[in-house]
Structure formats: C-alpha cells, structure tokens
Design a protein around this nucleic acid. Structure first.
Lengths: 202, 202
DNA sequence: GTCTATATGCCGATAGAC
DNA sequence: GTCTATCGGCATATAGAC
C-alpha cells in the first residue's frame, strides 16, 4: 500500500546521509541505504534513478545547512570581521571534536571521484565551495576590507586545509593554527586599510 | 617458471600506483591491478597478503619521492626562505596543470577511509604529512625564523588547502593565493625578526 | 613463483505482481 | 508505491597443479 511518498524519500536521504558521510560513498551499497531506511532496494530505485542520483541528492542536501551553520554563527554578532572569522575556525574545532565528525563531505566526495571530472558529486562540491568563498568575500566587503576577494580565497584555503589536516591527524588543534593565520592576514590588511583611510580625514 | 620476484613485485606496485592514484583505491579491484602488471591475481596474493597490504605499499612508495621532489626543488638555492616557500607553491601549480594530476594521494586515501581510523592508509597519510610539516619547520629554523613550528604548520595548512581547492575546482591558480598568503605570513615574521635583531648590534 | 579454476558474497539495477 | 525475486557482473580471497 502507498505510504507517504515524500516521507519515504526523506528517510532514504537521511539513511544515505548517515551512511555516506560515515563510511564513504563508494564503500556503502544501495542495499545498506535501503535497509537503514526500512524499505527495499526496489523502492529506493523508485525514488532515485541511480546511485549517482542519490549521491547528488545527498550532497545537495548538505549544501545549505553546512554553510548556514556558519552564517548563523556570526550573523548576530557586532564583532569586527577578524573576530568573526576566528569564530568560524573555533566552530570548526568544536565540530571536529565530535566522534562522528569525518571531515568535509564535499572534499571527501571530490577525493573519491577524483578520477571522474564530470561526476555529479564533483559538480556539487565545486558549487558548494564557491558559495562558501563568495559568502566570505561578502563578509569582508561589508566590512570595507580592501582586496576582499583575495583574502576570502586565502581564508577558504586555510579553512579546507585545516579540515584536511584535522581529518588526517585526528587533531582538532590544527584549527587554532589556521584561525591564527587567517586573523593575522586580516589584521595586516585592516592595519593597512586604517593607515590608508586615516590619512584623509580633516 | 619463477621469474625475477622483485621485478614482479615492482611491476605490481607500478600498476597499483597508476590505478589507485588515477581512479581511487576503492574503485580499483585487484583484478585490474594484476592485469595491468601482466600477472594473475594469484601472483598478486603471493606478493601481498591482502589488498590493504598493497594499498599500504602503494602509499609508502609515494612518501619519500613526494617529499623528495620538494626538497630537491629548493635544496640548491641560496634564496631567502620566503622565496623558497613560494617556489613550493609554484611547483604545486605547475604539477596541477598536468592532465594526470589528481591531488594528493595521501589526502585522498584519508578521505576514502575516513570511517576506518586505524586503517594502514590513514597511518601512512598521517606519517607523510608529519614528515612534510617537520621538514618545513627545519627549513624555517635553519633561517633563524622565530616561531618556526607554528609557521610551518600554517604553511602546511595552506599547502593542503590549496591542493584541495585545486582538485575541487580544477583550477591551479589557487596555488597563487596560497603562496601569497604563506609569503605574507613569513615576511611579517621576518620583519619582526629583523626588527628585533637590528636593535642589538653596537 | 606462477598458473587455472573457483569459493563466496555483494555490487548496481530490473521484472513483474499487487 | 512498495513488494519478492532475480539478473549479470565484479569484489576479495583461496585451492591445488606444476
């Protein structure tokens, strides 16, 4: 008998999220996803055309919440931009301390499908990281930071570098080093910016 | 008839390296490795106890050459440390332009086995990155840089962050942003160091 | 040390009933 | 929309001949 279709789909996605993020995409079969969702494989293939289709939905489902968590973190803050950016790295450090933390789902997907340039997972990963970098740039622009685009890119690199090192060494303290580097790059620029603007006032 | 055993092993490792680095570890079967090496699966299992054993040998075989390439790159140079570090990122950018470049084998292995903390691939990845970071620290110490350990870690984070972003976006220019950030962090410190030391002379 | 042949099980994906 | 049953293929690993 037909149950609620959207509810079934939601449970399939929740199962896929837990299993793909926990153990990796290629190491998890569609059997396991269907079983965890409490349906048969045939039902999974009713809701998703292929495993790749399910993988794409899994990553798409992580895009907005992942970035959103960082956006909420510093939205309600009147702190200067240097402190806001430091909070991003503090949040990363705290997240990484969870025993269920397994790094960045998008980076890991791109790594797993490094040999398949056009794979939906690669497309989703690139799109998410571009959105993250653009958000950082807007953050710096709003603060009147000079060279915001370049600095946002450097902070993005520090962020993913820290995530990678934490995953490899299982040591969240790499977030401290990355946060300190980001703060130093930003305060250098801020200092230059202040120096440049403090010349003009009457 | 028994051929040269070490030669057979070498060819198995060469085949494993090409296939694992090209397509990923989990997506390549031992059948494909044996076939590319020109032997049967049974011979592969004579030389390696398991696929995990072969994977560990694959990564161990990349440890020394990978770091060695960067060491040779700046060993014969009398440039200041800032320029030497920039050359690391320039080399990364040049490497990433090759169509066969697929990011860092150690990062990708750690990503594939993120759900298996004790896996041999994870151990090999952590060991390699520690060696890389230690080498960077020695480089800075030799130059008399203050806070060499912290800066080496930050350069390491920038390096792996750049590798990751390049892989995700297929855009080697991320190496420029990372190199510029590293140079700025180092020149800040160098400036402080010079300022601190230029006070003492008579 | 290398071979042929095979054990055993999971892979993604599908047929057809209800 | 969900089910039972199954397809053909490939996974890691092994038995036993030479």
């Amino acid at each position: 008998m037909p149950r609620d279709s959207t509810e079934t789909r939601r449970r399939l996605l929740a199962a896929a999220d837990a299993l793909f993020y926990g153990d990796g995409i290629r190491s998890v079969g569609v059997d396991a996803v269907a079983q965890k969702a409490g349906v048969t494989k045939r039902t999974l293939y009713y809701h998703f055309a292929s495993k790749d289709d399910l993988v794409a939905a899994y990553l798409d489902g992580r895009d907005v919440p992942t970035l959103g968590r960082y956006q909420e973190l510093i939205a309600d803050s009147a702190e200067p931009v240097v402190q806001r950016v430091r909070r991003i790295f503090e949040h990363l450090k705290a997240s990484a301390k969870s025993p269920r933390w397994r790094g960045c789902s998008f980076v890991r997907a791109a790594a797993e499908f490094a040999g398949s340039p056009g794979h939906p997972a690669r497309v989703a990963a690139s799109r998410h990281k571009k959105r993250f970098e653009s958000w950082l740039a807007e953050l710096l622009i709003a603060e009147g930071t000079a060279d915001a685009a370049s600095l946002a890119r450097q902070v993005m690199i520090l962020f993913d570098g820290a995530v990678t090192q934490i995953l490899i060494h299982r040591d969240p303290s790499y977030a401290d080093a990355a946060g300190a580097a980001a703060a130093r790059l930003l305060s250098m620029r801020s200092a230059q910016h202040e120096a440049a603007t403090s010349v003009s006032p009457p």
